[in-house]
């Protein structure tokens, strides 16, 4: 049982929570996630740890309402308890001074990008963030992103904010302008696929954080499996970050629809 200590709407459909989890907040690193279950009939669903406050023993989750399970979390209020939460899970992001790092975050993917951005910045990288969403309201956490970025480029599909166009246009602009040593991308699978295709063209090493379907999150079931470089890997224990150029995104997109209701 983990108590919710704060709740804030970042947009209509995106909620930021701070949750009591002293052990997890102490041991987590950038890139880790937790598995959350709400109610005795609830399913186990993964969310990235967007931030942690070791002093207060809390972690931050940023959750987008998509379907039933994310809805259930988002309906909880300050003082309510999350029935079960386990973590930190997955491998931490590999952080070092690469040089120039482009962080390409789409939609709710901006939240899990935040701790990575920050760690990259603290490791001495020049961080260029490209944020993208359908429309202005869905660009979340811009202020915090600015704090850890040397430059922020914003893209919206409808042109309601920043530049009009897809995330790939923003990333391509940077790559054409200067040498990029690493690209990190988090967002909807289809977006990561296009970012990956673009950076491959320019030979920019790219890491994608995959959001497959999970059950246990500890390597026990194989629900999260993806093909990377021709081999089956488990996202929850071998990932969630992989060399994007090796990921079979088409298979991943297909598998994400397994339980579409």
């Amino acid at each position: 049982m983990n108590k919710i200590v704060s709740k804030e709407y970042l947009s209509d459909r995106v909620v930021k929570f701070e949750v009591e989890a002293p052990l997890i907040s102490k041991s987590r690193k950038a890139g880790h996630f937790v598995i959350v279950r709400v109610g005795k009939k609830g399913e186990r669903v993964p969310y990235t740890i967007a931030n942690a406050d070791v002093k207060n023993g809390t972690i931050t989750l940023v959750i987008q309402k998509v379907g039933k399970s994310s809805q259930k979390v988002c309906e909880l209020n300050v003082g309510d308890y999350i029935t079960d939460m386990v973590g930190p899970l997955g491998k931490a992001t590999h952080i070092e001074n690469f040089g120039t790092v482009v962080c390409a975050g789409g939609g709710v993917g901006i939240a899990p990008m935040l701790p990575i951005m920050r760690a990259m910045k603290e490791a001495g990288n020049r961080v260029i963030s490209v944020l993208a969403a359908r429309t202005k309201e869905l660009i979340i956490l811009e202020e915090q992103v600015r704090e850890y970025s040397d430059e922020v480029i914003i893209m919206t599909d409808d042109g309601s904010y920043g530049n009009k166009g897809l995330i790939t246009a923003g990333v391509e602009k940077v790559i054409q302008r200067e040498k990029v040593d690493l690209c990190v991308t988090i967002g909807p699978a289809i977006m990561m696929k296009f970012v990956s295709e673009l950076t491959k063209k320019y030979d920019v090493p790219t890491v994608a954080s995959l959001n497959t379907i999970m059950v246990d999150g500890t390597g026990m079931c194989g629900a999260c499996r993806v093909t990377v470089g021709g081999q089956t890997r488990f996202v929850c224990v071998d990932g969630p970050e992989f060399d994007a150029h090796q990921v079979d995104f088409n298979e991943m997109l297909m598998r994400l629809k397994a339980y579409d209701r």
Binding site: G39, K41, G42, E43, R44, K68, S69, K72, V215, D216, M220, C221, G222, A223, R225, V226, T227, T232, E251, M254, R255, K257, A258, Y259, R261
Partner: peptide
């Protein structure tokens, strides 16, 4: 073809049904 939809490990199947009670219509786990 082992990663096609509908193919899963025994652990996934039994975990869904036994631990997550997926056969119960009230359960959120499919």
């Amino acid at each position: 073809g082992e990663n096609l939809i509908g193919i899963m490990s025994c652990n996934e199947y039994l975990t869904r049904v036994n631990l997550m009670q997926a056969a119960d219509p009230e359960s959120d786990t499919p």
